[in-house]
C-alpha cells in the first residue's frame, strides 16, 4: 500500500508566539521549527501500516527550502521518500489542497493520511478540501484505523466520544492525538534520513496555480485578562458567583 502523508513545518508550539508590531505576522526570529505534531501521528500510523503489510510512505511538504528539514525529520520517523513543493508564497488551505491534489495525481497513493490540523494556523481544512477536490471519501480525527479489502473502518474522535465510519479506498484520513504514540527519531534512522530521496519541484512543475481563497489581513493581540479581586468569605464568594459573574 502506498500512503501519501502531507507534513507541515510549524513554529515550536511550546513557545508563545510574538506578534510583529505592525500586525503583519508573527516574529519567528530565534524560534525553532518542527514537524506539525499532528502530522507525526499521521506519519506513525502510515509507517505502522506499511511495517505490517508492506508498501511505502511518501511525504510531501509545501513551502520554502527550509521545509526540507521538516521532510528529513519525517523521513527519520520511517517514511521512504519525500516531495518538496518549493514556494515562497503564503498559501491558504484551498491552495494547499490544490497543490496536494497535483502531487496525489503524480503518486496515485491508496491512502492519504495527515494531521487533523496544523498547530500554527489551527485551520483544520486542507485534508477535507483535498478529499473534496479529488472526490474521495474522508475520515477525520481518527482514533483507530482498520484497513480491510479496499476499505477502511475508522473510529473517529467526536464531541462526547467516538463514532465509527466505513469508507472505500482510496481515501483521506486525518489523525487525532490518541491514534498512536509517535516514535522518536532514533539516531540510526536520522543517519538514514539524510540519504533518502527528496524530490524538489515548483508549482509550475506540477502545473498548479495554487490560488488562495482567503487572506490574513492582520494579526492582533488577544485581550488580556482583567484584574481580579480577593473576597473575604465563602458567603461573599458564592454571592459574587451568583449575582456578578452569574455562573452558578
Amino acid at each position: 500500500m502506498k500512503i501519501l502523508v502531507p507534513v507541515r513545518r510549524v513554529p515550536n508550539p511550546d513557545i508563545k508566539v510574538r506578534l510583529k508590531s505592525d500586525g503583519s505576522g508573527v516574529d519567528t526570529e530565534g524560534v525553532n521549527f518542527l514537524v506539525n505534531p499532528f502530522d507525526e501521528y499521521a506519519i506513525e500510523e502510515a509507517v505502522q501500516i506499511v511495517e505490517k503489510s508492506g508498501g511505502e510512505v511518501v511525504l510531501v511538504s509545501i513551502g520554502t527550502a527550509d521545509c526540507e528539514e521538516t521532510l528529513r525529520a519525517g523521513l527519520a520517523l520511517g517514511a521512504l521518500r519525500g516531495w518538496l513543493v518549493e514556494t515562497s508564497e503564503v498559501l491558504d488551505s484551498a491552495a494547499i489542497a490544490d497543490v496536494l491534489a497535483a502531487v496525489y495525481k503524480e503518486e496515485s497513493p491508496d491512502l492519504v493520511i495527515t494531521g487533523k490540523q496544523s498547530v500554527d494556523t489551527d485551520n483544520n481544512q486542507a485534508a477535507q478540501m483535498l478529499a473534496a477536490k479529488l472526490d474521495l471519501p474522508q475520515a477525520c480525527f481518527a482514533f483507530k484505523v482498520e484497513l480491510g479489502d479496499g476499505k477502511a473502518t475508522v473510529e473517529r474522535e467526536i464531541d462526547g466520544g467516538l463514532d465509527v465510519k466505513e469508507i472505500t479506498l482510496p481515501a483521506v484520513i486525518t489523525a487525532d492525538l490518541r491514534l498512536n504514540q509517535p516514535r522518536y527519531a532514533a539516531l540510526p534512522q536520522i543517519m538514514k534520513a539524510k540519504r533518502k530521496e527528496v524530490k524538489k519541484v515548483s508549482l509550475g512543475d506540477l502545473g498548479v496555480e495554487a490560488k488562495s481563497a482567503t487572506k490574513i489581513l492582520g494579526l492582533s493581540q488577544p485581550p488580556a485578562r482583567a484584574a481580579g479581586q480577593i473576597v473575604g468569605s465563602v458567603e461573599e464568594l458564592v454571592d459574587k458567583l451568583v449575582n456578578d459573574a452569574k455562573v452558578l
Binding site: 511550546d14 525553532n32 518542527l34 528539514e69 528529513r72 525529520a73 527519520a76 522518536y184 527519531a185 532514533a186 539516531l187 536520522i190 543517519m191 534520513a193 539524510k194
Partner: peptide, 16 residues
C-alpha cells in the same frame, strides 16, 4: 548540520 539539528530535536523531545 541537518543531522545535528535533528539529533537535538529528538533529544529535546525525548527529554521533555
Amino acid at each position: 548540520t541537518d543531522i545535528q539539528r535533528m539529533v537535538r530535536d529528538t533529544a529535546r523531545k525525548f527529554a521533555a
